[in-house]
Amino acid sequence: MNQKTLTKADLAHFTGSEQWYRHGLARNVLYTEGAQYVAEHGGAYWLIDEIAFGQAESAVAAEEFQVWRLVVNTDQTATLTCDDGNDRVVFTKQIEYTDFPLPEIRFYFTNSIILLPSEY
């Protein structure tokens, strides 16, 4: 098993993206170098999947700009939410277990691209 080495300080280094990654199943979804880094170093390809597959929900797809937030609880459960950028939640999912290394992370989704807020 790979050790998760993701820290909050790592994320500050991503302020743009020169390379895009295409989601393996949701082929219309791209993600940035920062999102790839989180997936690889945080063991969170599942989180990229959740955001990509979440686009199939009509309430989610109706939002041109989305803020995805994962909050990890001390018991290793988590809540994943999507809002419209104005704190109006359009999607919520309870995660029964996660070993994601950070207590919280946010992604933006716009123009079919998943990115870190610092890459926007």
Rank of each mutant, 00 (worst) to 15 (best):
E96H: 01
L30R: 05
R27T: 12
Y45Q: 11
S58E: 10
D75V: 09
S58Q: 12
D75W: 01
Q94G: 12
I113W: 07
E64V: 09
E57L: 07
Q3K: 01
Y108H: 15
G34T: 04
W20P: 00
A78W: 14
G34V: 02
Y31D: 14
L80E: 02
L6H: 08
Y37N: 10
T74K: 00
G16T: 07
E50K: 15
H41F: 06
F53I: 03
T79R: 05
N86W: 05
T74I: 10
T92I: 13
G34W: 01
T98E: 15
T98S: 09
D49K: 04
S17D: 06
Y120R: 04
G85K: 06
G54V: 01
E63A: 11
A12M: 09
D10S: 07
R22N: 13
Y21A: 02
L30C: 08
I95L: 08
F14Y: 10
D99M: 01
I113S: 06
V90M: 03
G85D: 10
I48G: 03
G42V: 02
T32V: 13
D75F: 08
T110G: 13
R27S: 14
R69Y: 01
Q19K: 00
R22M: 15
D75A: 09
E104H: 08
L47F: 09
E50R: 12
P101Q: 02
Y120P: 06
V38Q: 09
N2R: 14
V72F: 01
N111A: 11
K93L: 07
F53V: 04
N86G: 09
T77M: 04
V60Q: 02
L11Q: 09
Y97A: 11
P103C: 07
S112P: 02
V60E: 04
Y21E: 14
E18D: 15
E96I: 00
S17C: 08
I95M: 05
V71H: 03
D75T: 12
P103L: 09
E96S: 11
T32I: 06
Y120D: 12
